[in-house]
């Protein structure tokens, strides 16, 4: 069996003694797009943070392997170096650190010495263009005074520049206007179509089906109360669009009873 893939097995995790994830099983193969949808409080962000190694979240059982390498127990920076990227729902501001400096440092950390300064500049300008971002962004301080749309664009710029193996997008579409949403979609699609990006596996975590109008998902999973309760193809997103989560909730309750 091939080792390639982002494999979440029976993942159980929580925060401050509260169990939130009650056994998540999910596999994202290279080049595929999985959407994970669920109502508020279902544990979606807990899953994202547990995978990335946020210190407040504690994994109590299960594993997450990336191309065969166990991530649980690794420091967050090591997970990124293994090839994991997390796009934050609420990215932190780092005043005084310019976007250019930050991305250069990050790129150097995950792919040491692979780009000359000139090549780095060429690459980042190309990605800025795809995202409809002005070059002025590069000298602004990371997320400092950024609008919601600007923050999400910066997450996408980092995704493009760090070229991970697997990308987890945590509610990247929350609170976005149509233009910003389109930019996110355009960026992900451009990456998937590129030579370097077509093998990236995506896990898109979202509350609303909107983002899936811009990014085609291969598989859709519904999460509720810390478990994945239903999985299917893209048409599952349409069910949510039409009926909300209540119908699925009833279905799940009925099957348990």
């Amino acid at each position: 069996m091939s080792e390639r893939g982002l494999r979440i097995s029976n993942l159980q995790a929580g925060v401050e003694g509260n169990a939130i994830l009650k056994g998540i099983d999910l596999e994202v193969l290279p080049g595929s797009v999985h959407a994970l949808m669920g109502p508020n409080g279902s544990g979606k962000s807990t899953l994202a943070f547990s995978m990335a190694g946020h210190p407040s979240y504690h994994v109590t059982a299960g594993s997450v392997t990336l191309d065969g390498e166990e991530l649980i127990g690794l420091a967050p920076d090591k997970r990124a170096k293994s090839g994991l990227f997390l796009s934050f729902q609420y990215p932190a501001a780092i005043p005084g650190v310019s976007v250019a400096n930050f991305i250069r440092t990050a790129r150097q950390a995950v792919r040491p010495d692979d780009l000359t300064p000139a090549k780095f500049r060429a690459l980042i300008f190309e990605k800025l263009d795809t995202l409809d971002m002005d070059a002025a962004f590069l000298s602004r301080y990371v997320n400092d005074g950024f609008s919601g749309g600007e923050k999400k664009r910066l997450e996408m710029l980092q995704l493009a520049m760090l070229a991970p193996k697997y990308a987890v997008l945590d509610e990247t579409d929350s609170g976005l206007d149509v233009d910003a949403l389109k930019a996110v979609g355009k960026s992900v699609n451009a990456l998937r179509e590129s030579e370097s990006g077509k093998e990236i596996g995506f896990l898109i975590i979202t509350h609303y089906p909107r983002i899936l109008q811009h990014i085609a998902a291969d598989h859709v999973h519904i999460m509720m109360d810390g478990r994945i309760v239903k999985s299917g193809g893209p048409e599952l997103a349409n069910v949510i669009e039409r009926d909300g989560y209540d119908k699925i909730r009833e279905e799940v309750a009925a099957s348990v009873g």
Binding site: A75, R79, A109
Partner: peptide
């Protein structure tokens, strides 16, 4: 802040 630190570390930058 822990949030700033985690954000940077999540991009591969060691602590």
């Amino acid at each position: 802040s822990d949030e700033e630190l985690f954000y940077a570390e999540s991009r591969g930058i060691e602590r």
